[in-house]
Simulated scan of single mutants.
Amino acid sequence: MQHQVTPPASASRELSRDEGLRFRRNVTFGRIVFISRATPAIRVVSHAMDGVDLLLGLPYESEINALLTHTSPVVYQADLLDAATRLGWSVVLSGRAGLVEDPEEVEHALRRLRPWPGERIDVVVRIHPELVTGFHVAEVGAGGP
């Protein structure tokens, strides 16, 4: 006789700005979204926190470098979702991104960033979040919503 396992009841709730910033500290990678050649472009990148700002390590790509020569609007998304339980969180921030050019700041960032295996970091980008949104899905009655 087979027994079907019923997944725990879960609920989703929106995250506050502070919660979103706090959750983002739990992962070291996410996705940067920017406009390139009049279309959205997405790259998976490593990140580290610097206060509320986000530092990204990117390989050199002329389209990214050209975009970020001036402070540019971007979107960054990070999450930690479990495919089996469908529990976790996702945070999206919108803000202005620019290249970090001060050699000491770049060195500091490089010590903190954890790139993907085989990924090289040629440029460091700082994003100052202007808008932070997100959601958290947790089991009902287990410290969740």
Rank of each mutant, 00 (worst) to 15 (best):
S12K: 10
S12H: 13
R13D: 00
E14N: 12
L15G: 09
R17A: 04
R17P: 08
D18Q: 00
D18L: 12
E19L: 01
R22F: 07
R22S: 06
F23P: 06
F23L: 07
R24D: 01
R24Y: 07
R25Q: 07
N26M: 12
V27K: 13
T28I: 09
F29M: 13
F29H: 14
F29R: 12
R31G: 10
I32M: 06
I32Y: 11
I35L: 12
S36E: 04
S36D: 08
R37F: 10
R37T: 04
T39Y: 02
P40N: 01
R43G: 09
R43P: 06
R43K: 06
V45L: 14
S46W: 07
H47M: 01
H47N: 01
A48Q: 00
A48T: 00
M49F: 02
M49K: 09
D50G: 00
G51E: 00
D53A: 03
D53Q: 02
L55E: 00
L56D: 04
L56T: 03
G57H: 07
L58N: 01
L58G: 11
Y60V: 13
E61K: 12
S62W: 15
N65H: 15
A66E: 15
L67M: 11
L68S: 02
L68I: 01
H70N: 08
H70V: 05
H70P: 05
S72N: 01
P73Y: 05
V74H: 10
V75W: 04
Y76Q: 04
A78S: 11
D82W: 02
T85H: 00
L87C: 07
G88Q: 09
W89A: 12
W89Y: 02
W89M: 08
S90G: 10
V92Q: 09
V92K: 01
S94T: 15
R96Y: 05
R96K: 14
